[in-house]
Amino acid sequence: GTVHVGDKTYHFPTPDAAKKFAQEIAKKLNLQVTVKNGTWQVH
């Protein structure tokens, strides 16, 4: 899975790992999470 946070991109071996990371970052930074075609965006 891929997660975009601002101008950074993180790659994870599984979709679940990407989802978990995106949700944790969003919670920590009080941001929104959207997913499109398996790519997570934190914004």
Rank of each mutant, 00 (worst) to 15 (best):
H11S: 07
Y10V: 04
A18K: 00
V33L: 11
H4P: 00
H4T: 11
H43V: 14
Q32P: 09
H43E: 12
K19T: 05
L31H: 06
A17K: 08
A18S: 02
V5D: 02
V3I: 02
A17D: 08
T34K: 05
D16S: 11
D16L: 08
A17P: 00
H4V: 15
T34E: 07
F12C: 08
T34H: 07
Y10S: 01
K8G: 04
G1W: 13
P15M: 13
L31S: 07
V33S: 03
V42Y: 02
T14D: 09
V35I: 11
A26W: 02
V3P: 01
A26K: 02
V33M: 08
T34N: 05
W40Q: 04
Q41K: 06
I25L: 13
E24G: 10
Q41N: 12
L29R: 05
G1M: 10
I25C: 09
T39E: 15
T9Y: 13
D16Q: 12
V5R: 01
H11F: 13
Q32K: 12
H4I: 15
G6D: 05
G1A: 12
Q32V: 15
K8C: 12
V35H: 14
G38I: 02
P13W: 06
N37P: 02
G6Y: 13
Y10G: 00
T14A: 04
K27C: 13
K27N: 09
G1L: 11
V35A: 08
W40A: 04
K28I: 11
V42F: 04
N37G: 09
T14E: 05
A26N: 02
A22N: 00
D7F: 11
F12E: 00
H11Y: 13
P15L: 13
A18T: 01
Q32G: 07
P13Y: 07
K28V: 08
K36C: 14
Q32Y: 06
T14G: 04
T9R: 08
A18G: 02
K28W: 07
H11Q: 07
V42T: 04
T14W: 04
Q23E: 14
K8P: 01
H4C: 15
T2C: 12
P15C: 13
A18Q: 00
N37T: 03
H4Y: 12
E24R: 13
N37A: 05
V42G: 02
D16V: 08
K19S: 10
K20W: 08
K20G: 05
T2M: 09
V3W: 00
Q23N: 11
T14S: 10
A18M: 02
V3R: 01
A17E: 12
P15K: 14
T9H: 08
H4L: 14
E24D: 11
K8E: 07
L29H: 14
D16K: 10
H43T: 12
K20S: 09
F12R: 00
H11W: 13
Q32A: 11
Q32N: 10
H11R: 09
L29I: 03
A26R: 02
T14P: 01
D16G: 10
N30D: 08
P13C: 13
L29S: 05
K19Q: 13
K19P: 00
H43F: 13
A26E: 02
Q41P: 03
D7N: 14
K28L: 13
D16A: 12
E24F: 14
T2K: 11
A22I: 04
T34L: 06
P15H: 13
L29Q: 04
A18N: 00
Q23S: 08
A17T: 05
V42P: 04
K20A: 12
Y10D: 00
A17S: 09
N30R: 06
K19D: 07
N37W: 03
K19L: 09
K27V: 08
H11L: 08
A26F: 03
W40L: 11
F12D: 00
E24Y: 15
G6E: 06
E24L: 12
G38Y: 06
K36H: 14
K8D: 06
Q23H: 15
L29G: 05
H43S: 13
T39Q: 15
G6N: 08
D7H: 14
D7P: 11
K8M: 10
T39L: 08
P13G: 08
H43D: 10
Q23C: 14
H11P: 03
H43A: 11
K27M: 09
A17G: 07
N30V: 04
T2I: 13
E24N: 11
W40G: 03
A22W: 02
L29C: 10
E24I: 12
T9L: 12
D7V: 10
A22E: 00
H11I: 09
K28R: 13
K36Y: 08
K19M: 13
H11K: 09
G38N: 13
A22F: 02
G38K: 05
I25T: 06
T34V: 07
L31P: 00
I25R: 02
Y10A: 01
T2E: 07
T39R: 12
T14K: 03
K28G: 05
Q23R: 07
L31N: 03
K36I: 15
V33F: 08
P15G: 10
H4N: 09
V35N: 13
K20T: 09
T39M: 14
K8Y: 10
T34Y: 08
A22P: 00
I25K: 02
Q41M: 13
Q23T: 13
F12M: 02
K8W: 11
G6A: 06
L29Y: 15
K27H: 09
D16W: 06
N37C: 07
V3S: 01
K8S: 06
K28A: 10
L29D: 04
K36P: 01
K19I: 06
W40S: 03
T2D: 06
A22V: 04
V5M: 08
V35K: 08
E24S: 12
H4A: 08
Q23P: 00
H11T: 09
K36M: 12
G1N: 14
P13L: 10
N37V: 03
G1Q: 10
K20H: 10
K36R: 11
A26I: 03
W40V: 08
A26H: 02
T39P: 02
V35W: 14
Q32R: 09
G38W: 04
F21A: 04
A26L: 03
P15A: 14
H4S: 08
T9I: 15
I25A: 05
H11M: 07
P15T: 12
A17I: 07
N30Y: 04
A26V: 03
F12T: 00
I25V: 10
A18C: 03
V42K: 01
V42S: 02
H4E: 10
V33R: 00
N30F: 05
W40N: 03
N30P: 01
P13N: 11
K27G: 07
H11G: 04
K36T: 12
Y10M: 04
A17M: 13
H4M: 15
A26G: 08
F21G: 01
V42Q: 02
T39G: 11
K27P: 01
E24H: 13
T9G: 03
P15S: 13
V3Y: 00
E24M: 14
F12K: 01
V33A: 10
V33I: 12
I25Q: 05
W40P: 03
G1D: 07
H11E: 06
V33W: 05
F21R: 01
T9S: 08
T9M: 12
K20Q: 12
V42C: 02
G38L: 04
F21Y: 07
A26T: 03
K20Y: 07
I25N: 01
A18R: 00
A17Y: 04
T9K: 09
K28Y: 08
A26M: 04
N37R: 03
H43C: 11
E24C: 13
Q32D: 08
L31D: 02
I25S: 03
H43P: 04
I25E: 04
L29T: 05
Q32L: 12
G38C: 06
T39S: 15
Q32M: 12
A18L: 02
A26S: 06
D16F: 05
H11V: 09
K28H: 10
D7E: 11
H43Y: 13
V5H: 05
Q41E: 15
Q23M: 14
T14Q: 04
Q32I: 14
G1C: 15
Q32E: 11
N30W: 04
Q41S: 09
V5K: 01
K19G: 08
A22Y: 01
Q41F: 15
P13E: 11
Q23D: 10
D16N: 10
G6V: 05
D7T: 14
K27F: 07
T14H: 07
H11D: 05
T2L: 09
V5W: 14
G1Y: 15
T9C: 10
G38T: 06
V42H: 02
K36V: 15
V42M: 03
H11A: 05
P15R: 15
L31G: 11
V35L: 14
G6C: 14
T14V: 03
G1F: 14
H4Q: 14
Q41A: 06
A17Q: 11
K27I: 08
F21W: 10
V5E: 01
T34Q: 06
N30G: 15
W40R: 03
N30H: 11
T14R: 03
K20P: 00
V5S: 02
Q41V: 15
V42L: 06
V5I: 14
P13T: 12
T14F: 05
